[in-house]
Amino acid sequence: MKKIINSSKAPSPIGPYNHAVQVGDLLFISGQIPFDQATETLIDSGIADETKQVMENLKAILSEVGMTFENAVKATIFIRDMEQFSIINEVYGSYFKQETAPARECVQVSKLPRNVNVEISMIASK
């Protein structure tokens, strides 16, 4: 049975989806963009700040069901410019321990919602 998960600390979905869906021990988190729910602003002050906000949004959704980044098993990073990969990777990596970091891929795309530069989705497991 699936359980719908939404967090008041993450940006409201901008389409017909929820923040996450939990099925058993698995949590499937929708792609998060650098929108700060607290200030209701899109963060566009540089790729490091944008990536940090995305990770904080993911963290808020994970915590909604009592999980942390330690529970992450898979992540997908979508970026508009592969030249920014090293900065994104540095910020992203600061949220994980090397020995428990999830599997992941990073894909360059031509456009993302609200014209942001980075979006990350995640799967976690209890």
Rank of each mutant, 00 (worst) to 15 (best):
22 Q>R: 14
23 V>T: 14
24 G>D: 13
25 D>S: 14
25 D>R: 13
26 L>R: 12
28 F>Y: 15
28 F>E: 04
28 F>Q: 03
29 I>F: 01
30 S>W: 06
31 G>D: 11
32 Q>L: 09
34 P>Q: 10
35 F>M: 10
35 F>L: 13
35 F>C: 04
36 D>C: 14
38 A>Q: 14
40 E>K: 13
41 T>Y: 09
41 T>N: 15
43 I>M: 13
44 D>F: 09
45 S>P: 02
47 I>K: 04
48 A>T: 10
52 K>V: 00
53 Q>G: 04
54 V>L: 08
54 V>H: 06
55 M>R: 10
55 M>L: 08
56 E>L: 15
57 N>H: 09
60 A>R: 07
60 A>M: 02
61 I>F: 04
61 I>A: 03
62 L>K: 09
62 L>F: 04
62 L>Q: 09
62 L>P: 06
62 L>H: 04
64 E>I: 03
65 V>L: 05
66 G>T: 08
67 M>G: 05
67 M>P: 04
67 M>H: 07
68 T>K: 04
68 T>E: 10
69 F>Y: 11
69 F>D: 08
69 F>G: 01
70 E>S: 14
70 E>T: 12
71 N>D: 10
73 V>E: 09
74 K>R: 11
74 K>I: 00
75 A>S: 11
75 A>D: 07
75 A>I: 01
77 I>Y: 03
77 I>A: 03
78 F>R: 04
78 F>H: 06
79 I>Q: 12
79 I>K: 10
80 R>S: 05
81 D>R: 07
82 M>V: 07
84 Q>L: 11
86 S>M: 12
87 I>W: 06
89 N>E: 14
91 V>Y: 05
91 V>R: 05
92 Y>C: 06
93 G>T: 01
93 G>Y: 05
95 Y>F: 15
95 Y>P: 04
95 Y>W: 10
96 F>K: 06
97 K>A: 12
97 K>H: 13
97 K>V: 10
98 Q>S: 11
99 E>W: 10
99 E>R: 13
100 T>G: 05
100 T>W: 02
106 C>D: 00
106 C>G: 01
107 V>A: 06
107 V>L: 14
110 S>Q: 13
110 S>A: 12
111 K>M: 09
112 L>Q: 01
113 P>T: 03
113 P>L: 10
113 P>W: 08
114 R>K: 13
115 N>R: 11
116 V>L: 09
117 N>F: 05
118 V>T: 07
118 V>F: 03
119 E>K: 12
119 E>W: 00
121 S>V: 00
121 S>H: 01
124 A>K: 08
